[in-house]
């Protein structure tokens, strides 16, 4: 038998999140399949590293495996990882499959990680974006003049729509929205909006014009550590990672369905949140106003920062997304909501 390998795993959110549950399944499975030769020392809830420190910490070996969002927290180090722009897709599974495949097929993206001493194990698309607000948002023009808590590409999006993006920290904004510190909160995935109490605390909810999936969570391993593992152990990690995606997709779909039903329940209560979804014409208007602006902005910035042609990466990525969409059975939260209790 081989030497015992301890891998230090760090995550910035707690065990209750689906992404964390997926990682727990992955780690348990790896431990089982390696007959305990690989064991994980697990740190959740930022108890080892905060969100922004996960990927820098991974590069320097402070953790061996991390689950984080380098595109949000370490933008300059991981410009290409930000390729999941709003309005590309509403299919989380397609994002999951496409990004993982992009890592294995696109040299520029792989180099982005290797140059930071990291190697992607698997990536996971978040669920679709939501916007919760004090006033109903159902048309593109409803954005005009609002103060909206938003980050990243979604901040650029609401700005393009005439709103003022505000960067109040999430928990403060959640408390503050009821009292008007901000008019709306977005850049919050469908599932966490329900689970985190945002939907319950708001007057109005919407898909915001189908901004879709705008971020991914990436699990990566320190490259030096990876290279020190035996080929057998490497194979176990790769195999389980692949199975993990299948397992995760199922878990994620169940979860989103559950959250959608929960939202139905919340919305059915007296005086509770009112959900309005954008119609096709208005959704198209939102996209027309914002997409080209953020796309061009991203391509220019990412090309400069990564020193590659980022438009090529985006095209490859979108092609992969379409490929995975074709075989995906994923239903996003708003679709399920509409089917189950939409008017």
């Amino acid at each position: 038998s081989q030497a015992k390998e301890t891998l230090v795993y760090a995550n910035y959110v707690s065990e209750i999140y689906t992404t964390s549950q997926g990682d727990i399944w992955f780690m348990d499975e790896v431990e089982k399949r390696s007959n305990g030769e690989i064991v994980f020392e697990r740190y959740f809830s930022s108890s080892l590293l905060n969100g922004p420190d996960l990927y820098p910490g991974l590069s320097r070996g402070a953790a061996d495996v991390v689950a984080g969002v380098p595109s949000a927290y370490n933008r300059n180090d991981y410009p290409l990882s930000n390729v999941t722009l709003p309005f590309i897709t509403n299919d989380s599974d397609a994002v999951t499959g496409a990004f993982t495949e992009l890592f294995y097929t696109n040299d520029a993206l792989r180099k982005e990680y290797e140059s930071r001493n990291a190697r992607v194990l698997y990536a996971r698309g978040y669920s679709v974006n939501t916007i919760y607000s004090r006033l109903p948002i159902t048309k593109a023009e409803d954005y005009n003049g609002l103060k909206i808590r938003a980050v990243l590409s979604i901040a650029d999006t609401v700005k393009a729509l005439g709103a003022t993006p505000v960067s109040v920290p999430y928990p403060e904004a959640l408390e503050g929205m009821a009292r008007g510190v901000v008019d709306a909160m977005t850049a919050s995935p469908f599932d966490s909006s329900v689970k985190g109490g945002l939907a319950e605390a708001s007057k109005y909810g919407s898909d915001g014009g189908r901004m879709g999936v705008y971020a991914i969570n990436i699990v990566a391993i320190n490259l030096d550590r990876w290279n020190k593992l035996s080929p057998e152990h490497q194979k176990i990690l790769t195999d389980v990672a692949e199975e993990m995606i299948v397992h995760y997709n199922k878990m994620r779909q169940d979860e989103v369905r559950q959250n959608a039903l929960q939202l139905c329940e919340i919305a059915a209560k007296e005086g509770a949140v009112k959900i309005h979804l954008f119609d096709d014409a208005e959704a198209a208007k939102v996209r027309d106003l914002a997409y080209d602006k953020i796309k061009d902005g991203w391509i220019e910035w990412a090309s400069k920062t990564a020193n590659v042609d980022a438009s090529k990466v985006l095209d490859d990525y979108i092609a992969l997304i379409r490929k995975h969409e074709a075989t995906s059975t994923y239903k996003n939260g708003w679709e399920i909501y509409q089917e189950e209790c939409g008017s």
Partner: peptide, 11 residues
């Protein structure tokens, strides 16, 4: 050297 920055609404 790496020009570390955060990104909320602006960099």
């Amino acid at each position: 050297l790496s020009g570390e920055s955060s990104y909320g609404v602006i960099a």
